[in-house]
Design a protein around this nucleic acid. Structure first.
Lengths: 126, 126
DNA sequence: GGACAATATTCGTACAACCGGTTATACGGT
DNA sequence: ACCGTATAACCGGTTGTACGAATATTGTCC
């Protein structure tokens, strides 16, 4: 019974990070995104992106789908009742958040940019 | 605009601690509690209790009311829309949580115990 | 199988958070 | 004014977390 509160705290700790919040927010608005999209949209290093995605994955908040060399991540509803409720509240409220527009705009800009094809060579065939 | 996501993360960080979660849970079930009640119910040192209460106070999640030497703490709904929503979800879900019974039981046991009067001498006149 | 691209992991380090124990402050009773 | 109690603030040590840089892994193409 001691374990349970600890689990809640651990879960909240996963959420309590700027980068991971931004990632969740972007993922909740797109069906899926690959690592390079996230690192470009958020302007972070590859190592940083991968590390935080691993944290989210271990917490059961996202799942990865391998397709060739790419790894696509998508959000997944946690099985735990409380975790799901908290995540839903968070994402719902993030929509009204002043930052949300900017965040999505940055992502959109990157996805439409010419650099995207230049950086990810093999992507052109898709 | 960069500031805002940071604020959300900071808020979640305040929530992401076992002791503070237990305190919030207890406070959400009692109108108010003094520090010595919390430290006894949770079985923690005075220093620890005071420190975490200060954190909650600075985050605007609780307010203190001085009455003589005692400080009574009570929960307060945050002004920020998202913070309030998250806190509400958390407390609502904590009710169904397996730990909740034990937690309240510990508090009740302490409040009714003979030790309470013995420890807090001046309390008898109230 | 070699070269290269996308992603993951490891390593060493800086920094923040938590802790117990101690000291300081504030208040009430005598 | 003095003493004891309740609480807050400080201090040194330990642990946890995030970071960049470098390295490893995995898959693709030739």
């Amino acid at each position: 019974m001691e374990v349970a509160v600890r689990a809640v705290a651990r879960f909240l700790k996963v959420l309590a990070d700027e980068t991971r919040l931004r990632m969740l927010w972007l993922l909740s608005n797109r069906r899926e995104l690959c690592v390079c999209d996230l690192m470009q949209a958020l302007g972070i290093t590859q190592s940083k992106a991968s590390r935080h995605l691993a944290t989210l994955r271990h917490a059961g908040l996202v799942v990865d789908r391998r397709e060739g060399t790419w790894t696509h991540y998508s959000i997944v509803s946690p099985q735990d009742e409380m975790e799901r409720a908290l995540l839903d509240t968070l994402c719902a409220k993030l929509v009204d958040h002043p930052d949300s527009g900017q965040l999505l705009q940055d992502l959109q800009r990157w996805i439409e940019s010419a650099n995207r094809d230049a950086t990810c060579m093999t992507r052109q065939g898709r």
